[in-house]
Computed example of a mutant assay.
Amino acid sequence: MGNHTTVSTFLLWGFSSFSDLQDLLFVMVFFSHVTILAANTSVMLAIKLSHNLHTPMYFSCGLSFSETCTTVVVTPHTLVDLLSDSKSISIPECATQMFFFFGLGTNNCFILAAMSYDRYTAIHNPLHSSILMTRKTCFQLMMTSCITGVVVSLCIVLIVFNLSFCDSSIIQHFFCDITPVVSLACDYTIFQKMILLAFTAFVLVGSFFLIMISYVFIGSMVMKMPSAKGRYKAFSTCSSHLTVVCTHYGFAGFVCLRPKSSDSFREDMLMAVTYTALTPLLNPIVYSLRNKEMQTALKKVLGNICRFSP
């Protein structure tokens, strides 16, 4: 280590460059967080209380829960930092935040892949879809996504936090993202960089490949449908999911897979605000709330809440 000073605490310096906008950022982040919690909680309650929505909307409930947890991992600490002058985070706290954030992010990717398979079964064999995609099958796919997230995230955190951090302790971000953290390490090698890139590619490219396989088969079946009405119905079945997939992978791919430089941290941070504050709203708004059965269930749940409220 020579004359280097070992770092034990990081400073999350992401929003400090907007010192005049701290109060405005706090209000925006706070209300987006409350909206995300309210929207996703409503979806989960509707699916829980309406038994006819458990399958195939079971995946939507899991995605809503996972995305809610993702915002809880990042946003509360961000709100505290916006009101605080210290903006510090210990290395164990930083490692914990990174573990849950990337574990839940990986879980989200593979849930979206499972949802694409659900769309395939609904179009390929609509009469037997409920038999193929039982509650047990949905639960198994959800648990596989969760376990994959835990394993991948644990490997990433072990690699990152076995590095030696010295001299600088300022993270140019508002949470413990991989690239800003490893840029502070004094023994970060190309080998470790390639391993982290391989894990990231496995999650993003691997899950996206599974989604595309499902949609290749879906597209082939849709093109063979004799009626325009049937093709439109099949397309409407997939449109909401495709909207969520394109937005999710568009943001994630831009941040994680593009070449990095010292000037890219600011762009990554601004993009991260979008996918931590906007993307979690896509599932309840685009996927769930556009579903007529979901709308009926939500009206029923809200009606019951209003009826029992004082």
Score class of each variant (00 low, 15 high):
S8Q: 05
T9D: 10
F10K: 00
F15G: 06
F18K: 07
F18C: 08
L24N: 04
V29D: 06
F30A: 15
S32Y: 12
L37I: 12
A39L: 13
A39M: 08
A46G: 08
I47V: 12
L49N: 13
S50F: 08
F59S: 06
C61M: 15
G62V: 10
S66C: 11
T68W: 07
V72S: 11
V73T: 13
V74N: 05
L83C: 06
S86T: 14
I91K: 03
I91G: 02
C94I: 00
T96Q: 08
M98Y: 04
F99A: 01
F100D: 01
T106W: 01
N107L: 08
N108Y: 03
F110E: 02
F110R: 01
D118I: 01
T121Y: 03
T121P: 01
T121N: 03
A122S: 12
L127M: 11
S129N: 08
I131D: 06
I131C: 02
T134L: 00
L141C: 03
T144G: 11
I147K: 04
V151E: 00
S153W: 01
V157E: 03
V157F: 04
F161P: 06
F165V: 00
S169F: 09
S169R: 10
I171V: 10
F174H: 06
T179G: 12
S183P: 00
I190P: 09
L196Y: 05
A198S: 08
L204D: 00
V205A: 02
S207Y: 00
F209P: 07
I211N: 02
I213R: 07
S214W: 01
I218A: 05
M221Q: 08
M221I: 07
K224W: 05
P226Y: 03
Y232V: 14
S236V: 14
T237R: 13
T237S: 14
L242S: 07
V244E: 05
T247W: 10
Y249C: 02
F254N: 11
C256L: 15
R258G: 12
F265C: 07
L270P: 07
A272W: 14
V273Q: 13
T276F: 15
L278P: 04
L281D: 01
N283Y: 08
Y287G: 05
K292H: 11
K292A: 14
E293P: 09
A297P: 03
A297S: 06
A297D: 04
K299Q: 14
K299W: 12
V301A: 08
G303S: 07
